[in-house]
């Protein structure tokens, strides 16, 4: 490049700078900071403020400053047998819902995997429960479970007044059955979210190339052997993602319960998230205590997620 050209280029750059007024860096900052501010205000600040509150005695409706109490809230929660019962209920609920959703979802995915007449329509129909609002689902399942006129009892052919089960009250023939109401709520959760597992499993299944099955047929593998050695390992990563999402959601389970039982009868369907809501926003507004509980739930969810993610990473490294 000659000296004249160099000069011309430099002056050109300077001209451009003057015209634009703002440097690249200034523009970058202009784009990033509003978003960052929003994130700090709406996410980071509540996160850390609630962490602080979890170490204090504080109620959002009492006109008193938070009082530092150290680990007392955590100690309270972890030594309270009632809380352990809620955790156990939540664990049972998560195990049953996620387990059934995985089994049924994967089974449905296997069924609609092959193209047949109307398979697209059927797949869409199966997906509908997932698209509904959980509160609406809760409300109309409350009607479905109604012991007097509900469709559920009609389906299981138990409609004799006085003898029919009242699922949400947890009784059959007016006699309490342990955990019946919990399983009733779990059934709705399974109904609603099985399609989600099916969707992910289906996309996993469709991604398996046909030639693997052709090779397996040539290798004289039976259908069961093909399923065990090809289908299952190939679909496992996506299935695990579905399980991870559903597990997290189960530990946050709140909306369906509130729509149907509100935690009852007694505390049979009192999931941990329902109890958290009760502590934070009902009665005494025990904000400090509730914050501590929220952090315990957060730690549990992170721990479970970590297990899954490690498993997933393991799969990826191998693959």
């Amino acid at each position: 490049m000659t000296a004249v050209q160099t000069q011309a280029r430099t002056s050109n750059v300077q001209q451009q700078k003057r015209r634009r007024g703002l440097s690249d860096r200034a523009i970058i900052n202009l784009f990033i900071w509003p978003t960052l501010l929003l994130l700090i205000l709406w996410n980071a600040f509540p996160l850390f403020y609630s962490l602080f509150l979890s170490f204090t005695e504080y109620s959002a409706i009492a006109r008193k400053e938070p009082v530092w109490v150290g680990l007392a809230n955590y100690q309270d929660i972890l030594t309270d047998p009632q809380m352990w019962k809620y955790f156990a209920t939540t664990g049972r609920y998560a195990l049953v819902t996620v387990g059934m959703q995985t089994l049924l979802g994967f089974g449905l995915a296997l069924l609609v995997r092959e193209k047949f007449k109307g398979s697209g329509l059927i797949t869409t129909l199966i997906l509908i429960p997932m698209m509904l609002s959980p509160v609406v689902v809760g409300l109309f399942w409350k009607l479905i479970y109604n012991p007097a006129f509900g469709f559920f009892n009609y389906l299981i052919m138990q409609t004799t007044p006085g003898k029919a089960p009242d699922m949400l009250a947890g009784t059959i023939a007016r006699t309490p059955v342990p955990n019946l109401a919990l399983w009733a709520v779990a059934l709705v959760d399974i109904w609603m979210w099985t399609p989600f597992v099916m969707l992910l499993a289906l996309s996993g299944l469709k991604a398996i190339p046909d030639y693997l099955y052709e090779a397996a047929v040539i290798d004289r593998a039976s259908s069961w052997f093909q399923f065990r050695r090809i289908t299952l390992p190939q679909v496992a990563p996506l299935l695990m993602i579905a399980v991870l999402f559903r597990t997290i959601e189960a530990f946050k389970g709140f909306d369906l319960v509130m729509g149907m039982t509100g935690g009852g009868p007694g505390d049979q369907t009192e999931l941990i998230a329902v109890n958290l809501y009760r502590q934070a926003f009902q009665g005494q507004f025990r904000t400090g205590h509730a914050s501590a509980l929220a952090y315990i739930i957060l730690i549990i969810i992170i721990a479970i997620s970590n297990l899954y993610i490690r498993y997933l990473n393991g799969l990826r490294e191998e693959g």
């Binding site: 090779a215 191998e318 693959g319």
Partner: peptide, 14 residues
Amino acid sequence: IAFVFQLYALYPHM
């Protein structure tokens, strides 16, 4: 009969 495919068709996860 054994078949050798153009794109190998090996089982990727094994």
